[in-house]
């Protein structure tokens, strides 16, 4: 076993500096690395490029880094529901690269898997394909998309062990397993860090080889963005 455990979020984020590119897991506020984001806010590092499907909301998630003006560029598929984001984007303070969701996922997976690029039909014939190489396969046009490159990946899992093996819960899985091993250093925060041998090897979603640092998050607020319920009849 190779021990990946670090004691806290401060140790976990050692080495992050200005001008870096980060990957952050999550879909909306579901499965976001809340503890890493709080630490990034505290560290006040700036000029960051963030790869994340969404950009949080005004007072939570990546919205906290935006309010602090720490982010220079966002690479996302959907960025609604965030007034400060909109203000910075329209004023030109923030650069935004919109990428189709499935392409964003695959650009992470390609980085993880060692593929430099891949062809996808998504975005062909739209402004997303502008300036990109295209090619026909089986009579259908495809766009060449390069893998992402990032310095750190910040991932949130449900359970993990000190070897870095991970299990995700529900739709909080989303981009998280794809970002593991897709950056130079992968930092995982878990709700529950269990002793070695507790997790069944048959049930592991992400093997520890893709993880460099793991810690148990101090606090998970797990905010709900759209609370939808039905009445009991």
């Amino acid at each position: 076993m190779i021990n990946k455990k670090v004691n806290n979020v401060r140790e976990a984020l050692l080495g992050v500096t200005n001008n870096m590119t980060f990957m952050l897991g999550g879909f909306g506020l579901c499965g976001i690395p809340e503890n890493a984001i709080s630490e990034l806010v505290r560290l006040e590092i700036k000029n960051l490029t963030c790869i994340s499907n969404n950009a949080g909301i005004d007072n939570f998630g990546l919205g906290l880094l935006l309010q602090n003006k720490q982010i220079n560029k966002m690479i996302s598929s959907y960025v609604g529901e965030n007034d400060e984001f909109e203000r910075q984007m329209l004023s030109g303070e923030l650069e935004v690269e919109l990428t189709p969701q499935g392409t964003l996922a695959e650009k992470c997976r390609a980085a993880q898997a060692g593929f430099p690029a891949f062809y996808t039909p998504a975005g062909y014939g739209t402004e997303v394909a502008k300036g990109k190489e295209t090619r026909e396969f089986d009579g259908k046009m495809h766009v060449l998309e390069p893998a992402f490159k990032a310095d750190f990946a910040f991932v949130k899992a449900w359970k993990g062990d000190v070897a870095g093996n991970l299990i995700f819960k529900g739709t909080a899985r989303n981009f998280n397993p794809l970002m593991c091993g897709a950056a130079t250093i992968t930092v995982v925060e878990v709700e529950e860090l269990v002793p070695l041998g507790v997790l069944d090897p048959n049930q592991i979603h992400t093997p520890g080889i893709f993880v460099q640092r793991i810690f148990q998050g101090e606090k998970f607020e797990k905010r709900i963005e759209q609370r939808t319920v039905r009445k009991r009849s």
């Binding site: 579901c30 449900w158 739709t171 797990k222 609370r227 939808t228 319920v229 039905r230 009445k231």
Partner: peptide, 21 residues
């Protein structure tokens, strides 16, 4: 499935519209 009953929402189980399901 359908939306959860009140009090049974789970922040970790949402749809693409970010609604609890």
């Amino acid at each position: 499935g359908p939306f959860p009953y009140e009090g049974e929402e789970d922040a970790d189980i949402i749809n693409a519209g970010k609604q609890t399901i």
